[in-house]
Computed example of a mutant assay.
Amino acid sequence: MNKEMIKTVKNDQFAKLLGLELITVEIGYAEVRMAIKEEHFNGIGIVQGGAIFTLADFAFAAAANAGGKVSVGINANITYFKPAKGRYLLAKATETASSRSLCNYSVDVFDEDNELLVAKFNATGFIKN
């Protein structure tokens, strides 16, 4: 894991605003946790989809950049399965494929018990260097 790149990932101001916490970061893998707060809820009282998307996107960014090469997202999609329950969410990002200039990741977002699959996020990144 490239410590300078992880420092850059940790400097993500939007992630800080949402309270995202890096739990595990390895080349091609990351876990990120988000404590669910009142400001994460939408008008109908469930965690806002954009907050879940950002959690998954941040896990993707941490895993994709952990090796020291700058990777930026060029495509992403998410499917929501169940409303988030509990006090926090955990996103687990795993590399599914990589080439010289592209990387693909799958991110599963779970409830606090690591049992309920809340959402699945898939992303493609462009490796800049």
Rank of each mutant, 00 (worst) to 15 (best):
M1P: 11
A56N: 06
K82Y: 14
A51P: 05
A56V: 02
F58D: 00
T94L: 12
V32W: 06
V107M: 03
F110A: 08
A123L: 01
Y105L: 07
S71R: 02
K3E: 14
K37L: 14
I6D: 00
A76I: 04
G49V: 07
M34D: 05
E21G: 00
I46R: 07
D108A: 06
N129C: 08
G86D: 06
K7P: 05
C103R: 03
F58Q: 01
A35G: 01
S99E: 08
G86I: 06
D12N: 12
S71K: 03
S71I: 08
N11V: 00
I78L: 12
E95F: 03
E112R: 06
F58H: 07
G68W: 09
K37S: 11
L102H: 10
F81R: 13
K16S: 09
L89Y: 07
V32R: 05
K120G: 07
T79W: 12
G50R: 08
N114P: 00
H40D: 13
D111N: 11
K92E: 11
V25W: 08
G45S: 10
G73Q: 03
D108I: 06
E31I: 05
A59T: 06
D111Q: 10
I74D: 10
D113N: 15
C103D: 02
K120M: 12
I52E: 03
L22D: 04
L117T: 09
F60N: 00
V118D: 03
K128S: 10
I46F: 12
A51I: 01
I36Y: 11
N75S: 14
A63G: 10
N75G: 12
G43R: 05
V107Y: 01
A123E: 02
N11W: 02
I36F: 13
A30H: 11
L116S: 14
N75R: 11
I27F: 06
V118L: 05
C103Q: 02
S98R: 14
Y80E: 12
E39C: 11
Y29L: 12
A56K: 05
G28L: 01
G67H: 01
F60R: 03
E39V: 10
V70I: 15
K82H: 15
E4G: 06
S99Q: 09
E31G: 04
A64S: 14
G67R: 02
I127N: 02
G68L: 11
A35Y: 02
D12P: 00
S99T: 15
I27A: 13
S98D: 02
G68S: 09
E4H: 04
A119E: 04
A84L: 08
F14L: 13
N65R: 01
A84H: 06
M1K: 07
L18T: 01
S106F: 00
G67M: 02
M1R: 08
D111A: 07
K37E: 14
F58A: 00
I6Q: 03
V47G: 04
